[in-house]
Design a protein around this nucleic acid. Structure first.
Lengths: 246, 246
DNA sequence: TATGTTCGCTTGATAGGACATACTGCCTTT
DNA sequence: AAAGGCAGTATGTCCTATCAAGCGAACATA
């Protein structure tokens, strides 16, 4: 059951060794070199094969276990779970997801203003009284079909934002260009039925099902950068994720 | 800015040291000893304070960073993000979540059978033709109010299941008692409107919003153990989670 | 005064070793 | 033949050590 992973480790690369291993094993799984259910060599042998230390090898395998591609059992070994598990939900924007998926999303900016934050927004973004925020609503379409209606509030002390930018790229892209390093986000997913305002914008009927998402994102300095309330057409959008037992 | 974490590490405990540290810092954050935004001492000092090695300290902090309670920046330090972030979504059952929350869920078993798996179920659970599964639908109530309508298919070569068990405890509890160690699950969350079958059961109107969830769970041997399709009342249930940037 | 460089602090990455613990299967014993 | 114990193997935990890299502030220089 000894598996030869034909990985080549480039020690001159700036990519950390453990991460090169992660990528190598990932691609081996996805290309079928490591079929679901197959067992890997033990950690020490693998480390020796790649001329790495065991801690480095373990760190790589830790990531793969965390993301659900591998399963470890003490005293037994490590095996590939299933090639069809998705990566765990990551912090990304709808725009990125659609772009990576080969789609070409477009954005209509329905409203845009730079206003003093109301109490709820100050609470969500932990802003002092009197602070100003950008507030805007956007309609995201794919292939001309409306998919999502998004309302966001963004603190204004990071980077200036204007309507043209929002029409051309995703919000997270703008903020990243503005120097924001996102670290985490809290979100809540639920359901509602389309009201008379939402339905025509999303090209559907009042009373049809919508997926709702509320999200607040935090950057690496601990600042609450952005909060928003999005609704998606229930017949064409759902959240997929993989949960991993710790 | 030196923070005295009044942690006591018990080296005779079977609980791993790094996990004791995780628990200690977690409780320090939740009790307010470490307020949001405060900086921790550097890793080496913390390790010295607790008489631990730096890798052990780091492993503990890794977990806290992964779960979103801490934010690290190279060259700067580590700080507490916010006490109000939730733990990332973990693999748990609705029953467990409700029980841990202090609620007392009850379960009505609406149907129960032990039948040959149809094609879709065999596909989802990766079963051979002719394999049998348990198929049942349940109504979960809290405080007498219906919350979720759940339809599940469970492979039958793990542990016998009967109607009385399902009425008394959660499905995951039964399976765990049967020796199943869950490792991961793929799930998809979406929305629909209640139909004429669902609405009366959930004590709501046809056309009201429902949150839908489809889940397939995998155990530590790579077996697909269970798949199910659940719907929740949209006005009283939503999925909360924290996403962490890797 | 303004700008550029250097230095120290902190986290990031990697190595190698040691012992603990869980699981499996074999072998002994009953 | 069945049950129990034991050894081998693999992962789990923890340690010491060292160098790399990012960041910020102090310092030197123009």
């Amino acid at each position: 059951m000894a598996n030869q992973l034909n990985l080549s480790i480039d020690r001159s690369s700036p990519v950390p060794l453990y991460h090169q291993v992660v990528q190598g094993i990932e691609s081996a799984i996805h290309t079928g070199v490591l079929p679901p259910g197959s067992r890997l060599d033990n950690e020490i042998d693998l480390a020796a094969q790649l001329n790495l230390s065991r801690p480095t090898m373990r760190k790589a395998m830790d990531e793969l276990v965390r993301s659900g591609l591998l399963v470890r059992k003490r005293g037994v070994g490590t095996q590939v779970v299933s090639s069809q598990v998705r990566r765990p939900l990551e912090l990304s924007s709808l725009y990125d997801d659609l772009s990576n998926n080969g789609s070409k999303p477009t954005t209509d900016v329905l409203s845009f203003s730079h206003i003093e934050a109301d109490a709820a927004t100050r609470e969500a973004l932990q802003l002092p009284a009197g602070a100003k925020v950008y507030h805007f609503t956007r309609l995201r379409k794919v292939g001309g079909k409306p998919l999502a209606l998004m309302e966001n509030w963004v603190r204004d002390d990071i980077t200036p934002i204007n309507e043209a930018q929002l029409a051309a790229q995703g919000l997270y892209g703008i903020l990243r260009n503005g120097g924001v390093n996102f670290r985490l986000a809290s979100q809540r997913i639920g359901a509602m039925v389309a009201n008379d305002y939402q339905a025509p914008l999303l090209d559907t009927q009042p009373g049809s099902a919508l997926v709702t998402m509320e999200r607040t994102a935090v950057d690496d300095t601990g600042r609450m950068v952005e909060t928003g309330h999005h609704v998606y057409r229930g017949d064409s959008y759902s959240f997929e994720m993989t949960l991993v037992q710790r």
